[in-house]
């Protein structure tokens, strides 16, 4: 019998790894992949609570998070393509026109 804490700790570890990727990497695509990783770790938390409490609401929320992830990936990758077309780079340190 795996306790609920094991699922939550696994989810926390994966979330922190994803957050580290977002903070430390400079490649825009890998930052996006890290965001997907963070969304997935949150999904794991929702499914774990849903299964342990016997309530389907958590799994419906996972469904909505997946829809959101699809929309976010489509728009985000379109932004990356537009940026690459203008500046020929996806290095986030060189994309600083809105930095004050």
């Amino acid at each position: 019998m795996v306790p609920l804490q094991a699922y939550l700790i696994l989810s926390a570890i994966m979330f922190i790894i994803g957050a580290m990727g977002v903070v430390t990497r400079r490649n825009a695509i890998i930052v996006f992949l890290s965001i997907e990783l963070m969304l997935n770790s949150v999904n794991l938390t929702l499914v774990a609570f849903s299964a342990f409490f016997g309530d389907a609401t958590g799994q419906v929320l996972v469904f909505f998070v997946m829809t959101l992830a699809a929309a976010e990936a489509a728009v985000g990758l379109a932004i990356v393509i537009a940026l690459f077309r203008r500046k020929q780079t996806i290095n986030l340190d060189e994309i600083n026109i809105m930095k004050w």
Binding site: L10, I13, M14, I17, G18, M20, G21, T24, R25, N27, I29, I30, L33, S34, E36, L37, N40
Partner: peptide, 24 residues
């Protein structure tokens, strides 16, 4: 899951990161 997540964040080539994300 943890090993593939670490590999996603640390690999230099984005395509290899993407493949490890699929493993994850």
């Amino acid at each position: 899951g943890i090993i593939s997540a670490l590999l996603v964040v640390t690999r230099r080539n984005p395509i290899i990161s993407a493949i490890y994300l699929i493993v994850n």
